Amino acid sequence: MTTHATTPVSTHAPAYASPADVAAHGPYGPGRTDRPGPLYPFQGRITAGGSGEYPAEPGRYHLYVSYTCPWAQRVAIVRDLAGLRDVVSLSYVDDDRDARGWAFRERRGPDPVNGFTLLSEAYDATEPGYPGHISVPVVWDRRTKRIVGNDYAVIPFDLGTAFAEWAGPGLDLYPADLRDEIEVLDEEIARDVSQGVNLVARASTQEEYERRRDQVTAALDRLDARLAGRRYLFGDRLTESDVQLWVVLARFDLLHNPLAGISERPLTGYPNLWAYARDLYGIPAVRETTDFAAFRVPGRPAPSGDGPVRIEVAPHEADWHEPHGREALTGEHV
């Protein structure tokens, strides 16, 4: 297949941001994530068939992602599973950030498209003086030199549906006969698991903390039961719902559970979910976009006033290469 999305080799030395320095610049968040208005304001959509402001074209779009962010990894996995490595290019920001936001440093490589040192430069190029949240994933348009969208919830759908004309051998992660069901399950996973783990971490009272963590553990129980007799969430077909669930499961024992104090039961304590997660990890598009070292636990704030007393959960190192034993459950070859 002809390679469309490669970036011209630069003859200049790569440009990098200085190391993240919270003492000098402050932490990321205040003044960015707490502003009024939408958190993800760039809502452009890539469309099929040559229509719209941003029609799907090979080589036109670039993804800025992060190894640490589950939403960004979800986009990276969908791009690879859909057969778009040669159609939509991709690069990574550094794992660490201060008040300046995501940056490009030697650990993850330079910005191959614009030579930016800070991702905020992409936001400022799109909206001069942009004051809001600097998030990943980001879809960048090489032609107009601006951000198309930063809404993590819709980018995977556009990647999985709009580029079929140029995609290499890949999977249909949004099969037409399952789209309504995928949408319903995606909403459940997002509400009760993907966003649920963060809501537990942010709970400000004991009552809220207990309620939020019960919601997450109940969802994990439901999903574990659902996977008892099927290889993927929709039986023998891998879909985007599997990708959304996997990026949270991969971080559960190392990040979400130790940070938030969700459950005494680690992912490895859910027999079907744990085998399913290992099964998906064997897929190259999943394994090659995963760096477990990036799932570090930040310091848990001490409770104050009426803040919740959380259960203590230590990070749990699991063997992701342990045989999963799910071969008997039929599923499409990946």
Rank of each mutant, 00 (worst) to 15 (best):
R296S: 13
L245Q: 01
N257W: 08
G261T: 04
R237G: 13
T268V: 08
R310M: 03
A250M: 12
S304K: 14
W246A: 02
P298E: 07
L254D: 13
Y281V: 04
L254Q: 14
S304L: 12
Y276L: 11
A285M: 12
S263V: 09
V247S: 00
T239K: 12
L249V: 02
L233Y: 06
F234L: 14
V248R: 02
P284Q: 08
D279C: 15
Y270S: 06
G229E: 15
E312Y: 00
L233F: 03
R300F: 09
S263T: 11
L249M: 13
P258C: 08
V247I: 05
F295G: 10
L227V: 07
F252P: 10
A260Q: 00
H256K: 00
G307K: 04
L233T: 06
A285H: 10
P266S: 11
A285S: 15
D279N: 15
Y232R: 03
G299T: 14
L259P: 01
V248D: 08
L233V: 05
V243H: 11
D279W: 05
D306P: 04
W274D: 14
P266C: 07
A260P: 01
E312F: 00
Y270Q: 05
G299Q: 14
G299C: 00
E264M: 06
G235T: 07
R278P: 09
F295K: 03
L255I: 04
R231C: 04
L255S: 03
